[in-house]
Write a protein that binds this DNA or RNA. Structure first.
Length: 891
DNA sequence: GACCTGCTGCGGTGTG
């Protein structure tokens, strides 16, 4: 055994790192020291820098020190864990094995796929340092044998998920099982903090701290915009004791843009980016192994097909990966990617996280990255070795994305990253947690109230809200009192417990906060399941129809028992399924970067490769209208055959833009009754009306006031319908709806009906119902993003509003126009023709302009320095804002 | 010859 001396107190961590051929980073030593000093905290660093080892080696060191002290005979014995079950104990004695040390560490990870790797990584130092420790896995993947072993005796370190932790806490022996715990680590905390899984984790942690008062909590996170808040949420009311450990200098990342060779005929609108196929294929060819990220599942399917068409030889070396593919297929692809036997994987966010793919040396992003953190996260999937550089190649799908990339690279370099906002008071998660706790030891109402108030999510939970929640799970609240299935808890000598084994079983089956709609399984007539598609897509298919899915051309045969049976198609192509997913808006940081970048362009600065390449189009925008400067809100007005158009460009992301459009349309129609058509994208929105609008900047400013925002929104969006949809998920989390036994999902329609029914019952007979209230709150906060919307309105009203008449569609307006006519299209052919016609017209106009300016330029002096602002079109009315912080407000 | 959209994550009927 190696002896420790005073000057090599950090002996073990160094020894272990040396055995791996690595040097410990300073941040790893910091975390290690803080752990040993009994602190809790958050470690943030890029992926691939060995965050996990920093805390784990602290736990290991503590174990080694305790062992040494025990050998010397001057230490307290280790805290005894639960005694081994009889069978285990006997077996151990027979085989003369030492029983492993009791549970010390709980490791929570948001993804099963990460758990297996973790077990292997955690085992390495304990083997090499000769500790008698064991590492176990407890996720849905854990085998029955493993579960049995854990029941008999917990391993020294247990890797689990937030959901499995809840399940473990739902058993009566939870206190005993966790009593010897020293530390809990929450991995990838940034993935959990902004959602209900994070809240579920907070509640689990609060319970563990009840069992073990000195429990240390450590979070591991990628870099976030709000790290201190992230730490505080993790530690709850213990946040005073928390440290924040900054990782090494950010991992070297290069963000490059694949520039279109020429901008002539480069699309002004669209999202697929097929135009860039040859260059993308070339880039894939050059690298060893590439991940191609797309923004949607159907886009991934299309790109997979296109790459394969371009390089049929790659058939055995390229793969597809997205969330609707069968798990078996996905795991196969993951395995081959990790093994380095694959050239290219086309994927969606499904590979943002997950197993380490060290062989990947290049990442390609098709289309908008939507956010800076997301871009860096994806970049980090390449160069996943200490010292290696992460590289991401961005591929524009339309002209303005070039501006986005330039903005994204700058923001990434300046580490302007998005924050993730923690949730407040989601009572559906609380209701679920109360039932989980009642299954275990039973609930002492006062004690649990104090316990949940130690979490950040429920720190402001009022006694009334608590009583309501308790009554809700005990009697179903005022409306459902008559139905025994909603009365889950019973009183037993001052505690609330669950007697019915039926209720217990059903509850365990619905633990968790992830909800998803029932989908139709796609399966070969003879052969494996390929994945799932939405019912609405299958409903449109007739037998014999061909579609593209899982990278294969399939012929639809029949639909039975919620399964679509298919066979390999002989026809070459077909339609591509669409999934109705969420619309991810451009993030606040990226949106503000784009506004700033356009501001530079407006001032004549084209100092990035992207803006230089996009210059011709930006100049068209400037000539035909304006490029908005920072602190300006551009509104383009036009009169066309079908009516009067206003294009407004707040650059706030699609959700907020849509909300703003709805709000403005509503306020406008109050002033002068009219019908309005709304279209929005990440940059702005279009209002179309058969009647003229003739609005001055002052009038626009009035339309954009924050006064009465919530009231006006309530009046103009169909709040009830939106809340009803939200309520579906809330009802599931709160345990009002049983989604069916595994393998036999309730049909989506049925689910909707029953949650809709409950929603209506609550609204009628229980108007104070707090879950209905929560549904409304979620609509405002998450769907309409009212917080961001009021910030946008404040910015708009303090901005200089420029109303610019236009005589033809500008590069900024074109995508909105194209999206609108697509919404109302009769056939896609007609639509294509119209878009083509319009594009040709615009192109000719641009050519004419260019000739004119070329003639103009020859007569001018060359080299205007400092940069001259772009020549803007004839300027419309301008009103200066009277606010103090004008241009700053836009950044 | 400009088009097609819209992400992800877990768990489960405690066992022999």
């Amino acid at each position: 055994m190696i002896r420790r001396t005073a000057d090599n107190a950090e002996f073990h961590i160094d020894r272990w790192f040396a055995s791996q051929g690595w040097n410990a980073f300073e941040f790893q030593r910091d975390a290690w020291r803080a752990y040993l000093a009994g602190r809790s905290g958050l470690v943030h660093a890029s992926t691939g820098t060995g965050k996990s080892y920093s805390v784990w080696l602290g736990v290991v060191e503590e174990g080694l020190r305790e062992r040494e002290a025990q050998v010397r005979g001057d230490a307290e014995p280790l805290t005894p864990g639960p005694s081994p079950a009889r069978g285990e104990g006997r077996r151990s004695r027979k085989s003369n094995e030492r029983v492993a040390d009791p549970l010390r560490l709980l490791w929570i990870t948001p993804m099963r796929a990460l758990a297996n790797d973790l077990v292997v990584n955690l085992e390495r130092p304990i083997k090499e340092l000769g500790l008698n420790w064991s590492v176990g896995l407890r996720t849905g993947d854990a085998s029955a044998a493993e579960r049995r072993r854990q029941k008999a005796r917990m391993p020294t370190a247990l890797v689990t998920t937030p959901e499995s932790l809840s399940l473990l806490l739902s058993y009566g022996d939870a206190r005993e099982r966790f009593q010897s715990l020293r530390c809990v680590v929450v991995d990838e905390w940034h993935e959990l903090i902004g959602n209900k899984r994070g809240v579920q984790t907070e509640l689990g942690l609060a319970r563990l701290r009840q069992y073990v008062p000195n429990l240390r909590t450590w979070g591991l996170s990628a870099t976030l915009g709000n790290l201190e808040e992230a730490r505080d949420v993790l530690l709850g009311n213990m946040s005073g004791a928390g440290v924040l450990i900054h990782g090494t200098a950010p991992k070297a990342t290069t963000v490059e843009t694949l520039l279109p060779p020429t901008m002539e005929r480069f699309p002004w609108a669209g999202h697929l980016g097929k135009r860039m196929l040859p260059q993308v294929v070339e880039a894939i060819d050059k690298a060893q192994s590439t991940l191609v990220f797309t923004n949607t599942r159907s886009q991934a399917e299309i790109w997979f097909r296109e790459i394969l068409h371009a390089r049929p030889k790659w058939a055995a070396e390229i793969a597809l990966h997205h969330g609707s593919l069968d798990r078996g297929l996905r795991e196969y692809v993951e395995g081959r990617t990790r093994g380095g036997t694959i050239k290219c994987v086309v994927c969606t966010s499904s590979l943002d996280l997950g197993v380490d793919f060290s062989p990947v040396d290049q990442v390609i992003q098709i289309g908008s990255p939507k956010g800076i953190a997301r871009l860096l996260q994806r970049a980090g999937r390449s160069g996943h070795r200490p010292g290696a550089v992460s590289k991401i190649l961005c591929v524009p799908t339309h002209a303005f994305e070039l501006v986005e990339y330039a903005a994204a690279r700058e923001a990434a370099a300046a580490r302007r990253l998005e924050g993730r906002q923690p949730l407040d008071n989601p009572l559906d998660v609380l209701a679920q947690h109360v039932v989980t706790m009642a299954l275990g030891e039973g609930v002492d109402a006062d004690a649990l109230y104090h316990e949940v108030r130690t979490t950040r999510a429920f720190r402001d939970l009022t006694p009334e809200q608590w009583r309501w929640t308790l009554d809700f799970v005990e009697r179903g609240g005022p409306a459902l009192r008559a139905y025994p299935m909603y009365s889950k808890l019973v009183q037993d000598g001052g505690r609330h417990v669950i007697r019915s084994p039926q209720t217990a079983r059903l509850h365990r089956m619905t633990i968790g906060t992830i909800t998803s709609d029932a989908a139709v399984a796609v399966q070969y007539l003879k052969g494996p399941r390929l994945g799932t598609i939405e019912e609405s897509f299958i409903a449109r298919l007739k037998p014999g129809d061909v579609f593209l899915f899982a990278g294969k051309t399939l012929e639809f045969v029949r639909f039975r028992d919620l399964k679509a049976y298919v066979r390999k198609a002989t026809k070459p192509s077909g339609t591509v399924p669409r999934w109705e997913g969420g619309r991810l808006p451009l993030s606040t940081e990226l949106a503000s970067g784009v506004r700033a970048k356009l501001g530079e362009v407006a001032a004549g600065r084209f100092d990035t490769p992207e803006t230089q390449r996009a210059r011709a189009i930006l100049e068209i925008q400037a000539n035909w209208s304006r490029v908005p400067r920072s602190g300006e809100l551009l509104i383009e007005m036009a009169h066309v055959q079908r009516g009067y158009q206003a294009f407004v460009y707040p650059f706030e992301g699609v959700l907020v833009n849509e909300g703003l459009a709805t709000l403005v349309a509503h306020r406008l129609s109050l002033k002068m009754p009219r019908s309005l058509t709304i279209t929005s994208n990440d940059y702005g929105f279009e209002l179309l009306s058969p009647q003229p609008f003739d609005l001055s900047p002052e009038m626009w400013r009035e339309l954009l006031t924050t006064d009465g925002l919530v009231e006006d929104l309530a009046a103009c969006v169909n709040g009830t319908e939106m809340a009803r949809r939200r309520f579906r998920d809330i009802a599931r989390v709160a345990g009002l709806i049983f989604t069916g036994y595994p393998g036999a999902p309730t049909a989506a329609r049925q689910l909707q009906a029953s949650s809709g029914l409950i929603f209506d019952v609550f609204r009628e007979y229980d108007p104070e119902n707090l879950l209905v209230d929560q549904a409304r709150r979620e609509v405002l906060e998450q769907q309409l993003e009212t917080r961001r919307m009021s910030a946008a309105l404040r910015r708009a009203t303090t901005a200089e509003i420029v109303v610019q008449p236009i005589s033809r569609l500008t590069p900024l307006a074109f995508p909105l126009w194209a999206a609108r006519i697509q919404k109302n299209q009769v056939s896609s052919e007609q639509w294509t023709k119209r878009v083509e016609r319009m594009a040709v017209q615009l192109e000719r106009a641009a050519e004419r302009d260019e000739k004119k300016t070329r003639r103009g330029k020859t007569s001018q002096n060359a080299d205007p320095s400092p940069p001259a602002p772009l020549p803007q079109g004839e300027r419309g009315e301008v009103v200066s804002s009277n606010a103090t912080e004008r241009s700053d407000a836009a950044i």
